[in-house]
Write a protein that binds this DNA or RNA. Structure first.
Lengths: 151, 151
DNA sequence: CTGTATCCTTAGGGATACTG
DNA sequence: CAGTATCCCTAAGGATACAG
């Protein structure tokens, strides 16, 4: 008879460590990019995400949106005046990851020689990181308000 | 005849954006966890990573180690006095991502109710983020020196 | 100890047609 | 517009066995 090493409960194993938790949410390129779009580019609707240059397919997008909603990163809202209008808003939890996300972008700008991101982005962050983040948060609020006020 | 939409060069498409660049390196749970181990837990050898509680298999580990080496995140060194001893060191580039990585861990500790990470970790970071990071960097140097000085 | 090589199964994901 | 459903293929990756 073949002896197999005890299989520990996978579910439990992947909890209890902050890096594992982060890996569960960010360790997927599509989630990563959706978060970028919703946090930094003001994208809110299904088609917004679908038309991102990276070209995610419909089934994968639906899968990732519900995954992020389940992780309490996105808030799915149906416009009361138009049922066909669905918007995904970043939650407080998602916004709180902005500093780390921006930190990672700044790092990328430094080391990716192909990056088209403006020099000024990294520079501005170095000079006033909190200000930059505050600006982005205010921007998110502004865009959210705008979306639900326009017919 | 069926018309297909023009397939843009995938390779080029995935460059030129800091989030895409970061997604390429961190958008994989195994890379994420290896980086954690090498940056925060002082792990250096093949078996160190192999014995991580998450249980990566040998072929995947080899694949990710070479991927991270190719991305200039890890520096592969053979001990001159013992050829069978191979160590992977975090590069300067890898260390520079520490602030973002730690920021993400702090965020995880806040939002993962299952996290076992010490409360003090998040607290310490809030009080003196730069000090915490500097401490980690010094720690990495210390461990590296130690590894090559011990027989 | 540090990996390769191989086998094999499942999950990821692209393309596309379809639905309310 | 916002998804579901299906087809189908490829890559991911677990479990070994093996090599230097």
């Amino acid at each position: 008879m073949i002896r197999r090493p005890m299989k520990k409960s996978t579910k439990l194993l992947w909890q209890g460590c902050p890096t594992r938790y982060a890996a569960g949410i960010f360790g997927d390129k599509w989630c990563f990019l959706i978060l970028r779009d919703v946090l930094l580019h003001g994208k809110r609707t299904y088609s917004d995400f679908l038309n991102a240059p990276e070209g995610i397919s419909t089934n994968i997008l639906a899968n990732r949106l519900s995954r992020l909603e389940a992780a309490a990163m996105l808030d799915r809202q149906i416009d009361p005046r138009k049922a066909s209008r669905v918007c995904y808003f970043p939650t407080r939890k998602a916004r709180d990851v902005l500093p780390a996300l921006i930190g990672m972008m700044v790092w990328s700008v430094r080391y990716d020689e192909h990056s088209e991101a403006p020099e000024t982005f990294a520079k501005a962050y170095d000079e006033d990181p909190k200000g930059t983040i505050a600006w982005y948060e205010a921007e998110i609020d502004r865009v959210d308000t705008e979306i639900f006020s326009k017919s």
